[in-house]
Each structure stands twice: as structure tokens, then as C-alpha cells.
Simulated assay, not measured.
Amino acid sequence: MVNYTFINKSVIKRTTVIEGVVETVSPLRIGGSKENFDPSSLARDSILKDVQGRPIIPGSSWKGIFRSTGERILRLKNIVVCSGVGKDYCLNNTQKEREFDSGLRENIIDQALRLFWDYTCLNCKVFGTKSVIGAVRFLDSLPISYSLNTRSMIAISRTEGAVARRALVTVEYVDVGSKFNFKMMGYNLPNYAIGYLVTIMKNIHDGFTQVGGHKSRGFGFVKFNIVKFTDLGEKRIGDEDVEVKGIGDLVEGNGDEFFVKMKPFMEAFNNAKIPYPKK
């Protein structure tokens, strides 16, 4: 019988927390909406701020960054994965959504669990999908220390792909050396899923993934500092999980040191034989 602990949210058998400090290595810009517009600012393209006027990296942005980065990592390993965008999600792609919804509606939980386990990718299980909450939560990242700056840039028309008529726009951004807190919580994550998330973090830390907008202009490079990993509960989730040795309930490290200490989890991800999704 398959162990569905990873995707079953009714009982929490393992809680993992990764928290630390994110430092900007290049300018950072998370765009604000029209409602977020600051009339006192010289910028006409302002960043997202909280009610106190501080820059913020929303948890939803982190989730999107992690999911898209993970998608690229999984595809490079020839592991089937959906984008989760629009209609490109596993239950729709495998035409199992109606049967899955029926199981939920009629309270046939075993059927729903089996379908979700068999026919969804690692990204769907970790980050969630339509009608299903993910196994991880990202908190909003608030600033510890920061400075804001502006820069005039050539505006590009999104519809025409060319220089807009009003060619210059003043862009607001968070300056280099600013620091934000970071916190991600996971529930019932197998060791290989923890290794997957740490691999994504290292991808961001090493500069292979950028955060926010204006990536083509060199914005969005960040690194992780003073990172702490806390692991409470069972140390192996599911029959397909890979055992991790030599790591206790708490791991701490500064940047590169943290990823060296977490290497056994990343190796668990690299060595895992992921049995889903079915074709």
C-alpha cells in the first residue's frame, strides 16, 4: 500500500523550516500596482511596498520563483513536470481532473489521494495546484535594512516590442546591499523534496535565477546569508524516500557554508527514483 503522508494534509508528521537573510547583489525591483503608487516619489515605475512604505518581497513571489526555477531543474533531469500556468497542470494534462474532483465531492478520499499521487508531478505536490494546497508556505520578506534609488531607463512597449513613444521612464528599485528576512515552512516533506527546495535555493544563491523584474538589465541577483534549517518529526516520509544521515534537527550556516552542510539532502534529491507522474 502506498504511503500518502507527503500529500495528505490531515496529519502533520514532519515540520521543516528554512529561514535566514536575503541580501541584494544587484538592484531589485518587485513591481507595485496602481494602488501602490506613491505620489511623493519621483519614480513613475515604483516598487511594491507595505503600509509603512517599506519594500517587500511577497510570499507569492517567492513561490512563483521557486516553482519556475524547480521546473527548469526537473526538466534538465528529464523528470516530467507541468508549469502550473493556465491549463498546463498535471490533472488537466492527464485528463484526471474530473475523476479527482468527484472523489473530493463525494468524500472518497482514498480515490482522490491515489489520483493526486499517481498523476501529479513533484511541483504540484510541493507547491500545490488547482483545488490542492501545497506542502510549503512562503512568508512575505520584510526589510532588515535597505536603501531605495531610481534610474531612468528606456521604456519598451509591451504590445509592439519596440521603444515606446515616451522613451524614458524613471524606475524605482531596492539598492545593492539591502537585506530582507526569508522564511519557508514545509509539512510532511520527504528528504528528496527538502533536497529539491535546497537545490532551488542554491540555484538562486549562485546567480542562476533572478528575483523580480528587469532581469535583462541585470536586476534581481540575491544571495542567502545566515540560513537556519529546523527539522522536527519523522526523518523519512514515504516508501520511496531516500535516507539522509549525519544531519540533526538543526543546521545553521552563512551562505555557501549552509549549502555545504545541506549537501546530503541535495544528494537525496539527485538519487531519488521519483515514481510519479504516471503516463
Rank of each mutant, 00 (worst) to 15 (best):
V22R: 02
E23F: 03
T24D: 08
V25F: 00
V25T: 12
L28D: 11
I30V: 14
I30L: 06
I30S: 07
I30M: 01
G31N: 10
G31E: 02
G32P: 08
S33M: 05
S33H: 03
K34M: 12
K34C: 00
E35I: 13
E35K: 09
N36P: 10
F37L: 14
D38E: 10
P39D: 12
P39L: 13
P39W: 03
P39H: 05
S40F: 11
S40W: 00
S41P: 12
S41L: 12
L42V: 14
L42S: 13
L42I: 13
R44Q: 14
R44K: 10
D45C: 01
S46H: 13
I47L: 09
I47P: 07
L48R: 05
L48D: 03
L48V: 04
D50L: 08
D50M: 07
D50K: 01
Q52N: 15
Q52T: 11
G53M: 05
I56P: 11
I57Y: 04
I57Q: 13
P58A: 03
P58H: 09
P58Y: 03
G59I: 01
G59A: 08
S61P: 11
W62N: 04
W62K: 03
W62H: 00
W62G: 02
K63P: 03
G64C: 09
G64P: 04
G64H: 02
I65L: 15
F66V: 01
R67H: 02
S68C: 02
T69Q: 00
G70E: 04
G70V: 07
E71H: 11
E71A: 11
E71Y: 10
E71M: 09
E71W: 01
I73S: 01
L74D: 10
R75N: 13
L76G: 15
K77F: 05
V80E: 15
V80D: 13
V80I: 14
V80G: 09
V81K: 03
V81W: 02
G84S: 08
G84P: 07
V85F: 01
V85C: 08
V85N: 08
G86E: 05
G86F: 07
D88H: 04
D88M: 02
Y89F: 14
C90G: 12
C90H: 06
L91A: 09
N92E: 15
N93K: 15
N93Y: 05
Q95K: 15
Q95T: 10
